[in-house]
Design a binder for these strands. Structure first.
Lengths: 339, 339
DNA sequence: CTTGGCACTTGATGTAGCCGAGTGCTAAGC
DNA sequence: GCTTAGCACTCGGCTACATCAAGTGCCAAG
């Protein structure tokens, strides 16, 4: 920290002060609150240079400076080693993330934990389809002419779909179909399942053919739905809190959060850096998230799915990055070792 | 409308104007925009009386009046017949609420439809446990020492729970246990299931006893979890929009929305009036919802579960009530006729 | 390259005055 | 007894203006 050019120290100090105070920071305040070892005049020169480079701006001709998105970017890239979680935070994560309960529940707990830890909106993308395989399926009659198809994946996820059955469906035929389908689908990923289904259909005896086609269509729907990723989130209330008296920006962000498609694309687009983290700052995002920053990390086998937080550009990057990475790691561990 | 005492007309006019303009409304503006047939002075007298009764207040000694919670209450109680949905709205509801897809998906679609229709935050409580019975169960091995129990209810809901298995679980024993449990649990509600489980356990052969106890414990957990109702919601972004420049209140409301427990208790506590609707206005709610109004209606068989919207006290009560009731009816119909 | 000094800028804050919307009240009219 | 016109009064909001504090840029000296 002491080794880098003073310019960087100044930028760092500006970011830190601005994040915590929410007010433009001036040269005097800077030398007061940070051990820079130089006078305010020197800092002023540095600040002029930083402004020249587009890293900070003065909102009004003569007031303190605030970091630009570019400034935040440099600041974030500068963070080499991410500091570990505090002991208290570690404890909080561990109590929140024990592995009991069903899959959905664990995901929900995880995203809540992240929201609480960061005081921000947390989002979690469900694991991508490719990572889990079909384990079991079940056809259940719910009522006359109404049935349910259930697909169970190796990850513990369960997909279902209720549908209307035209014809009579004799118990024996249904059971036979289930066995037949399962023989062909077991171990496949949902993405591969369509091919498996075709093979299975070829073996269906003529008298069950109509029934089988109906079931297969429903299964196809389930697999198709699974292919679309899902997102869950928590901590929306934190948004209102963190934007404080500056609520102009909360509307667009809330909108973006409701547009799951946008979020999903964003998450999948984001590339992880060497630290295993992705950070998108303000205008690096398009559309309604241009006022927000997103910090995400992959988790699970293959790191195909991501989790992260969304917040105002003026956020505590080091702390949030730490938390996101920690939660991603915990979740990965739980998912892999299946305790 | 013309028959009721003019006082009520005035109150009604004040509520309507205030809701649409967001500004205190004065006597002059009232006679201009409503066909009251009297002069502003007369209206002033009425307003003084209404203020005396605590139905309206003047925020500042001499400015227009705004309705109090009590005023809204009277206004809402006064609405005798709820006007029907417009044709366009009907169409919107119907296209949004076709019955395809799985149960969760339909619920999600419903709550989104309500949010969109009312431009407010919509909440939907999942059907209460008592209304559906156990239809099927399944034990699936996911990985060595890791298994999944799945319970399927007659409503089409599917509950699952992954757990760790200590001992070996031979295929044959698992299948036998499944049949045994199912024989005792089929047709029971989750609430009754604990008793059924005990009966089933009594019949388990000694060598499978340990395994059976393990499974039973997991089933118990599933039933217990199901007993806790769940809530889903949509349209949080509408909140930011509707509170407009007055975002002070958005924080507490968002918090309340995240506290599902509070919301659940509120929904179950609310009693339906003759119109099949429940309306809670501002201070009638305790805690962080004291700035908000809630309009809810029961749906489904027995009307055990509710759906509704949450918004600022200054909301379009007639319109929102219409929408909530319409959506509740549509959903009830779809759930009952299972098309 | 750093530093102290200084003139200058500017948003924020406070005060005063004015205007308009609105009220309450009284006295007259139906 | 209710309604209405008129009138004096209030008060929030807006503008104008002065003042203040924080901050900047720049220059000249160390």
């Amino acid at each position: 920290m002491g080794e880098q050019p003073r310019r960087m120290q100044v930028l760092q100090a500006i970011v830190e002060d601005y994040v915590s105070s929410r007010e433009p920071v001036g040269s005097k305040a800077l030398v007061d609150r940070h051990e820079l070892g130089v006078s305010s005049a020197t800092v002023r020169n540095d600040m002029a240079a930083l402004e020249e480079e587009g890293l900070i701006v003065a909102p009004h001709t003569s007031s303190g400076r605030i970091p630009t998105d570019k400034g935040y970017r440099l600041f974030v890239d500068q963070i080499s080693e991410v500091k570990p979680l505090s002991a208290a935070e570690k404890r909080a994560v561990q109590t929140l993330l024990d592995a009991t309960g069903d899959f959905n529940e664990m995901m929900a707990r995880t995203v809540r934990a992240l929201a609480q830890l960061t005081n921000q909106v947390a989002v979690l993308q469900y694991p991508h389809v490719d990572s889990s395989t079909i384990r079991h399926l079940e056809f259940v009659s719910l009522a006359p002419h109404r049935a349910l198809v259930v697909v169970i994946l190796s990850s513990g996820q369960v997909d279902q779909r209720a549908f209307h059955v035209e014809a009579e469906a004799p118990e024996a035929s249904v059971a036979a179909l289930k066995q037949l389908f399962l023989r062909y689908l077991d171990g496949l990923t949902p993405a591969q399942a369509a091919a498996g289904l075709q093979l299975a259909l070829a073996e269906v005896p003529a008298e069950d053919r109509a029934l089988a086609l109906g079931f297969a269509a429903q299964l196809d729907q389930v697999f198709a739905a699974r292919r679309e990723d899902r997102i869950i989130m928590a901590g929306t209330a934190n948004l209102a809190r963190s934007t404080g008296d500056f609520p102009l920006s909360i509307g667009p962000i809330l909108e973006a959060l409701e547009e799951q498609v946008v979020l999903l694309r964003l998450l999948t687009e984001m590339e992880q850096d060497v630290r295993g983290l992705s950070v998108r700052i303000g205008s690096e995002n398009s559309g309604s998230l241009a006022e927000a920053s997103v910090i995400a990390a992959g988790y699970g086998p293959g790191a195909g799915a991501k989790l992260g937080v969304v917040g105002p550009t003026r956020m505590d990057y080091p702390g949030t990055m730490t938390a996101v990475r920690a939660v991603a790691r915990y979740l990965s561990r739980i998912l892999s070792q299946q305790p």
